[in-house]
Design a protein around this nucleic acid. Structure first.
Lengths: 225, 225, 225, 225
DNA sequence: AATGAATGAGAGTTCATTCAT
DNA sequence: AATGAATGAACTCTCATTCAT
């Protein structure tokens, strides 16, 4: 039993249980510094993955960016896969926790749905890289068993959204002639896919984008008299 | 260098000028058969690209599927890039032509926009592979100069849509408080991204999807009294 | 379905069924030449494995010996493992066939055992490399599932020998106070391990070695009056 | 370079001179504890080398087993080679001493040879790991100059055995038609190679194995009337 | 129109070893 | 006595591409 920081396995296992907050427990206080180094490397990798794509980013690219040799990365990570895993996991943890919190706050379906939308847009900046990877490389990554948990997490999220849409229809807030599942998927995709062209320094920041979208989502683009 | 059908370069040049109809001119009647074989190979490649992604699909994969050796593919194509280029080009040709036709038919902005949306959804089945590649691999492919024409084509399309949205606002049909460019991008992304989960044999076919989306787009998901 | 010569899998499957003679069937006559090239490479690899050990021999070593680049080896073989597999398989096929033939010829246990010993010594020169690998690298190779069949083949051989020793004891030819299984193992190891120092150009060739050993085995080193 | 117990070099020099008894002299009493730790590490390494082979055992494997980090091993040893060196040296020291003692005790060649055989079998349990390494990894290790002394030690042992066999032939105890050198090698190999399958808890312990082998060696497996 | 052998660059990964702390 | 970060060389293997046949 080593005390290296290369404990991806255990870490992720914890994370996936849903212990919200995204706080990462470390066995030893002494490795707080080690964690910093590690987190820094993950961040560098994330930027490269986002920019060039997971497959097109080589382990050597990441090492170069960090100013070390490619082999040295393996002191911190088991594999290239485990790096991207860490990126995606920490994103999903935060998202799941935020979603749960929104549900807990309650409110009518329209309010809850607005909040869920805002949460999604809210991750656009802090988790830009993870979302980019998900948009561009998920089709490739999903083939690996180790990422099955993401498929499951997504299924959970879908249930959560669909429930709210149905509640909205039952309570007469939402139209009856929309398909809840379909509608969810379109909302979801519309939001995440913006990561490809969204620049937070532009005219609209993430909140502005969210407002704009919520407007269109609930009332459409037509002028109602 | 043979004088066979390996004339990707010239072909694409023609295509990009926008000569609608998708008809591919062949200099020699003798190569009609060769063209069939070639088209077949492109189709096989497209399916693989769609399923596994462009980078993850090897030239060997394509050759295996065709029952030949990987080196033999180079009798038909200059490179792996030129195969995907052919796939994307033929999609963009059809799309641009259809868009032009819709504009030519005229109508108020709401009608034109509806038609543009329907055209997009309409390509989902016949051009599934091309759209899939665009969704998953564009971030990688865009780095190559040879695909610059796609960026330009997309800019043209954007202008076309934005014009209609603005016309709609000016004529009082659409709300003033929506951003035309933003709205276009969201519509565009929402439609194309469905390629990832859309199954034409499901409850809704592409037309059904289009109807559903147009409904939400114009009037939102809220019930209006 | 390709027609490359990289069909290790199928080939070995056939071989293991026990089709004696060691003749290797090739799907196409056209690949007879391909087979020659392949066999040549296997031979080069075998010599290196024998000399330096399996692990210490790099794929580049083999390629260098063949005057090609390391990557080119993968046109012929799936992996380094599959090369050594081919070496070992062809040895085991020949050995099993020879053993069966000896049994078929019949004779009293002393004659059969003598023949089995002679067969073992007889493989020392033509299969020197395979035996060397088995002596030096088996402990490493056995960990891979793909070599399980060798463990099974060895178990079959053990049964065959033990049966003869027991028959010899029952018929009063061999002493009762020897353990058949133990005796077999010692005979087996004694013979194979000679591969480490045996030089066929020395005073004794393989046949001479066999005679010498049979003498000692049956009657010991003591002078009997 | 510290002045701790990392003195492999000197140590071995002493050992090779043949100072029997296996007692390891330590310059400083203070390092008695250090020595214990060191011996423990050597033992752990020996087990791993025996089980997985020298090359396949990584320095990390050893460190893991000891509950430390791989780099920390270098506080105790110069290199991976020096660890295995220590294992082999201590085995050869004991063996050489025992052989000398047997010679010193005298007796007719049959008695001396029996004793030598028993000595070999007697090392099987206490020096299992060293013998395993010698059987499996010697072909690799012998390439390094630092292990030349082992080749020389082996040559000494060979001379010792061959002398006894020749004496036996001259005195009429052993058959004239056996090759002394050949016979020695076969005896040697037969004994050591049993390390691969010998389990001391089985039906026969090391002494039993020795008895069995001596029986066969001197009188063969045939029943003599 | 296709084969089969090879190229050459580069991929992810391993590992003995070093060294400041 | 041990850590933790890093080195640097080498490893097996992949793959788009070329070319003589």
């Amino acid at each position: 039993m080593t005390t290296t920081s290369k404990d991806n396995g255990r870490q992720r296992a914890d994370a996936r249980t849903g212990t919200a907050g995204g706080g990462r427990r470390r066995a030893k206080g002494s490795s707080a510094l080690a964690s910093e180094r590690r987190d820094h490397l993950v961040k560098l990798a994330a930027e490269l993955f986002a920019k060039k794509g997971y497959q097109a980013t080589t382990v050597r690219n990441i090492a170069d960016e960090a100013g070390i040799l490619s082999g040295s990365l393996y002191h911190h990570f088991d594999s290239k896969e485990s790096i991207v895993d860490e990126i995606l996991t920490s994103f999903f943890d935060v998202l799941a926790a935020a979603n749960q919190a929104a549900l807990a706050r309650g409110g009518d379906p329209r309010e809850v749905l607005s909040e869920l939308v805002r949460i999604c847009f809210g991750t656009l900046v802090p988790h830009r890289a993870a979302i980019m990877v998900l948009q561009n490389d998920w089709n490739y990554l999903k083939q690996f068993d180790r990422f099955d948990y993401l498929t499951k997490a997504e299924a959970d999220t879908e249930r959560l959204w669909v429930d709210q849409i149905k509640r909205g229809q039952e309570s007469g807030l939402f139209r009856d002639d929309i398909e809840p599942k379909l509608t969810y998927r379109m909302i979801r995709d519309t939001i995440w896919v913006t990561v490809r062209w969204f620049h937070p320094e532009g005219r609209l920041d993430a909140d502005g984008l969210a407002d704009h979208y919520i407007k269109v989502l609930f009332d459409g683009i037509s002028k109602h008299h």
